[in-house]
Amino acid sequence: MEITPAHYALLSAALFIIGVVGVLVRRNIIIIFMSIELILNAVNINLVANARHLENLVGQVFVVFVIAVAAAEAAVGLGILLAFFRNKETVNIDEMNVMRW
């Protein structure tokens, strides 16, 4: 079977939906964070497949930037989470109740 751009688009859409559902239903902050990374990777697959299909490098450049930004976000996000954990001793989102959610 030949792999067409549509297959990549479907894979990317599936990853995106898994990520969105993960963010919405999971209660563990780390898993929510992983779901966000999943969404970003869905974006990357879409961009790379399109870049290949269109024979155009802009999409690949975009991916490099997305990866770099995801790394920066991870560094900052885990730092924030560490500060949160020191005070609350939990990474469960249901226990974030100092303010009304």
Binding site: V23, I29, I32, F33, I36, E73, V76, G77, I80, L81, A83, F84, N87, K88, I93, M96, V98, M99, W101
Partner: peptide
């Protein structure tokens, strides 16, 4: 402040 940062980040 911690909680706000986690929510804003996520």
């Amino acid at each position: 402040s911690n909680e706000a940062a986690v929510k804003y980040f996520l």
